[in-house]
Amino acid sequence: MHTEHDWITTPLTADLLRGALDLERTEHGLLPHRLPARARAQNTNPQLAMAEAQPSGVRLVFRTAATAVELDTLRTKRDYVGVPSRPDGLYDLLVDGRPAGQASGSGGNVLTIDMATWEGEVTPGPVGTVRFTGLPEGEKDVEIWLPHNETTELVALRTDAPVEPVPDRGRRVWLHHGSSISHGSDAASPTAIWPAIAASLGGVELVNLGFGGSAMLDPFTARAMRDTPADLISVKMGINIVNGDVMRLRAFGPAVHGFLDTIRDGHPDTPLLVVSPIHCAIHEDTPGPTAPDLSEISKGRLLFAAMGDPAEKATGKLTLRVIREELARIVRQRAADDPNLHYLDGLDLYGESDAAGLPLPDHVHPDAATHRHIGERFGALAFTEGGPFAARG
């Protein structure tokens, strides 16, 4: 074990972080955000505020000869009244791009949410330390992927050898926006969320704007994407529009056009992939809203149910089947003037036949095995030869 004087403390600065759009100085340290301050100022929704501050896809990246690394963090963990406590968030260690260890945090705050009212109460806790030892000798690239589902304030970074930023390796940047499924929902760890799996297969740098419950075609999210440098862009939309029952067909089509228009204002020729929802049996033909099944919560289980009436489709209420048809139509229409715009049917990532062997445990969110399945499918469909994100020459 290293003694106190062996450690070198390196200031936590933007050049050591990837995947965040903004860094907020707090009383404890540095809080990575996945939306910029201007967007956060226009948001009034506590769900999105929580989701964008959870560092899905955000990682510390540095070059060092260190064999031991300590990271002090202050986490905020979520718990829900009446259901089993969620597992601790994991930190994934990569050395020269390969998995080299995992650790979980300790201490920290707990946000307890009552799903009957969606009110939350925070119980404060202390800063914790994540420790990795036994790293290989010699200079190497080190990545520490932060927990995708726990707000994480970075307090201090200590190593037993100096740290420097990793030089640009020339990899393409993939900017992705989606729902809780893209955020990571019930994935096994931060590098096992489906976008991280797909990014690894594609050899690209991920910027993940998957926001649990919050892929709502918000204009401020579109502007954030417009202003973020990227070589590849994808937008996976639909399920949260149904979950929240936030718009009808009349509003949905123009909102999609507006979202894509805004992205195109900053990225006129970038490959842009529109991805429709994966299969979700409860909402294929039944509109939202989605609500937790309170009778199941009383048994300690979290399951979701569709609360809409299929007959309401006639008045413009949205189902997943309707949304897929509308997205395909919009992309066909726009692609006549935008050859770099592409469509991917979410059923090709996870369809009804996949659900038979890999069911969604809570009826909405994929589990760890299904995240891998979706990530590998996306990698094969998007990044290989002939796909919209295939490397060109």
Rank of each mutant, 00 (worst) to 15 (best):
G29A: 10
G57I: 03
R332H: 11
P219Y: 01
L358E: 09
P84C: 05
V61G: 02
S106A: 13
V166I: 13
G125E: 07
D367Y: 00
Q333L: 15
R158D: 02
I330S: 08
I144M: 03
D293P: 09
R98K: 15
L303Y: 12
L303I: 13
P99D: 04
D348P: 03
V127I: 15
P55R: 01
P292K: 01
A255K: 04
A291K: 13
R25F: 00
Q102W: 05
F211T: 02
A369Q: 12
L31N: 05
T319I: 13
H176A: 11
L135E: 06
G120C: 09
N109Y: 10
L327D: 07
N149R: 15
H5Q: 13
G244S: 13
A53Q: 06
L35E: 08
D354E: 08
T191C: 04
A161Y: 03
G346H: 11
H176P: 01
V58I: 12
R75G: 11
M225W: 09
F389S: 00
T44Y: 00
E284S: 01
N240H: 09
A356G: 12
F132K: 04
V364W: 00
S182F: 01
P359W: 10
S298Y: 01
L21M: 04
N149T: 12
K77M: 13
F132T: 01
V256C: 05
L35C: 05
T112R: 15
A187I: 00
Y350G: 10
K140H: 02
D227P: 10
E352P: 07
P167I: 00
P87Q: 12
V130S: 06
P229I: 09
V83F: 09
R78L: 15
A291R: 14
E52I: 08
P136V: 04
I193C: 01
G212L: 03
A68R: 14
M237T: 14
A215T: 04
F211C: 05
P162E: 11
I263S: 06
D96W: 06
T67C: 00
L154V: 14
I239E: 03
P46N: 11
L201C: 08
W7T: 00
A380C: 01
L16Y: 03
E164Q: 04
A103P: 01
T13K: 14
V166K: 06
E352W: 02
A103M: 02
S180Q: 05
D348E: 15
P87F: 07
M1L: 01
I144A: 07
G357R: 10
